[in-house]
Design a protein around this nucleic acid. Sequence first.
DNA 1: CGGGCACTTGATAGTAATCAAGTCCGGTGG
DNA 2: CCACCGGACTTGATTACTATCAAGTGCCCG
Lengths: 237, 237
Amino acid sequence: MQKNLCDCGICEHKLCAERVTIFSSLDNQELSKVVSLIMHREYHKGEIVVFEGEALDSLVIINEGQVKAFRTTQDGREQILHIFSEGDFFGERNLLRDHTSPYSVEALDRTHICLIHKRDFQQLVRDYPDIAVKIMEVLCERLDRLENTIEAMGTRTVEARVSAVLLEFAEKYGTDHCKGTLISLPLNREGIAQYIGLTRETVSRKMSQLQDEGIIQMIGNKKVLVLDRPALEKSIQ
Amino acid sequence: MQKNLCDCGICEHKLCAERVTIFSSLDNQELSKVVSLIMHREYHKGEIVVFEGEALDSLVIINEGQVKAFRTTQDGREQILHIFSEGDFFGERNLLRDHTSPYSVEALDRTHICLIHKRDFQQLVRDYPDIAVKIMEVLCERLDRLENTIEAMGTRTVEARVSAVLLEFAEKYGTDHCKGTLISLPLNREGIAQYIGLTRETVSRKMSQLQDEGIIQMIGNKKVLVLDRPALEKSIQ
DNA sequence: CGGGCACTTGATAGTAATCAAGTCCGGTGG
DNA sequence: CCACCGGACTTGATTACTATCAAGTGCCCG
């Protein structure tokens, strides 16, 4: 169910390399070189991009859409580890050594991805060492997020964890609205639960509670309006 | 309570730069250059190396001993995020941007550390781009560990989490013994609890249970003998 | 407009946190 | 070397919370 996109020539490709932080130190000519190395793929919602444990020989950049990275335990429970959106990448662990994918990745929407093969990537890093430094920075941000998650899962109450995930989504997926911040949720209730280590019923209950308290307002199942952001921030601590 | 160590000249310093993966691509002459940039410090058990939120302008390499990196919540609970031992480093987030420390760091033993100032480090990366690639690799390993921790905290039973931490310690701090693997625990019961998000009583109970089942044997409070490693590995899944 | 699926809400049960005593280990001083 | 003391650890009883099980509701898409 994958097809190449490369019909329209350079313009489309360039976008993809341009919008990624790790290539931000390159000039247009250098970007063109990167673009020439890129393969494109498209996935529908629910399609698996890569399975946990599978070999992966490319850096994968999200060009459009979003994906979830997750692990499945033997009894079938899923733990979502990352949500990657436009400009994010994964597969960095396979670029220098022959690791298999540490998680499965599934498209949450119709998603376009760009692939750079590891041999090309290794050459790129040799030619433009700044890329490694940029990747280092992104990995540091990712470490930050994981450390926050661990702190939350280890020490915070359930309400604080739900508030934290809503604030995270507000930051990433929120748009301004006259009454506050409107979030288009990337995950359904079950997904949110799998992201913060709870059950869907518990997430549902806590969100209803936050709504009763006037802190948020649910709009259908896929949107949330944050009415009282300071209250959310307070409940995290 | 800190003192410099640099009495004996090059030999001591070289050790410190040599035993770190991130400088493994350098030759002796280059290592000497690195060594000349390094400052040394020593801490006693319980001393704080850096506080969460404090500015930190150097990469910190553990030369001897070990430290814990942790966050404290408002109600006083601690979550241990990392245990760093000989050859590990932290402070990488401050090297390229002016971040404050994402966690407090406390010496678990008498600990020698080596400091490289960020301005020196930035020059080093410019001169030897391989260093950034090596750091990238180490950060990837660290992401792996954090992802494992999140998976464990989100989906695994308490027994599985205790087993997992014992196996992790066996890997890092274990020595062969006629009856199995002998672990010198880097943390007391409370520390283990703070590392995997439980209370000390629960850790205590589960370790007693593992002992009753003949899987481990506690030797005093600071050592554990793993008698049946396959059973531990099985209980993780 | 209708059907299916996701979500909500309620009742119950199980598990780990908390509260509370003891016990043991390890270090110190005699 | 032994006895003692304090802190860490263990164990037990109770409480609180969330998972689970179950039923109903409502959203969303065809």
